[in-house]
């Protein structure tokens, strides 16, 4: 067993893990971050991508035992409690979500991209989005989501009130 300290979504965890435990299993089954999906376990589908120290990483090909001291962000930690990140709002508004199995990774890849390039062109977006396979074929909508997110971030809109977004796009509490 290996002792590691991980910071996941700004919370510190001290863990004792077998040397070959994959980061995806730590995140999903040990810590309960189910936004991280396993589609292949081989670095192909990209549905397990999380940010490790700001870089997009396939959590199915990463060993937790090697990540002592790392800062990990999953979709659950993209925004503080009660908020939604502009990228998430952009993905809602771009209307591309179908089965949604791939979406968490596309969002994380978008975060990594926009952290580096604030105004990516079409080619760059396609290049980064090649990290994740979407069998429902939502790609063009996800390209659009990146642009929308870039615009929000440029306008300084990073976080949105979660309740407002929910009421606008999902379930409403009805006034008396």
């Amino acid at each position: 067993m290996v002792k590691v300290t991980l910071t996941v979504n700004n919370v510190k965890y001290e863990l004792d893990v077998p040397p070959l435990e994959r980061l995806i299993d730590t995140l999903r089954y040990r810590l309960g971050f189910t936004s991280v999906k396993e589609g292949c376990g081989r670095g192909e589908c990209g549905s397990c991508i999380v940010l490790v120290n700001g870089n997009p990483v396939h959590s199915c090909l990463a060993l937790t035992s090697r990540l002592d001291g790392a800062e990990i962000t999953t979709l659950e930690g993209l925004a503080p409690a009660g908020k939604m990140h502009a990228i998430q709002v952009a993905y809602i508004e771009a209307r591309g979500v179908q089965c949604g199995f791939c979406t968490p990774s596309f969002i994380m890849v978008t975060k990594a991209l926009l952290d580096r390039v604030s105004d990516p062109d079409d080619k760059t977006i396609r290049e980064w989005h090649s990290s994740v396979l979407c069998r429902c074929g939502s790609y063009p909508y996800y390209f659009e989501a990146v642009k929308r997110a870039a615009k929000y971030l440029k306008e300084g809109k990073v976080y949105f009130d979660e309740r407002e977004v929910r009421e606008k796009y999902h379930l409403k509490v009805l006034a008396r």
Partner: peptide, 12 residues
């Protein structure tokens, strides 16, 4: 680089 793996794989 342009044809290597996928974008995310290039970080690893």
């Amino acid at each position: 680089y342009d044809k290597f793996g996928t974008m995310a794989l290039r970080f690893e």
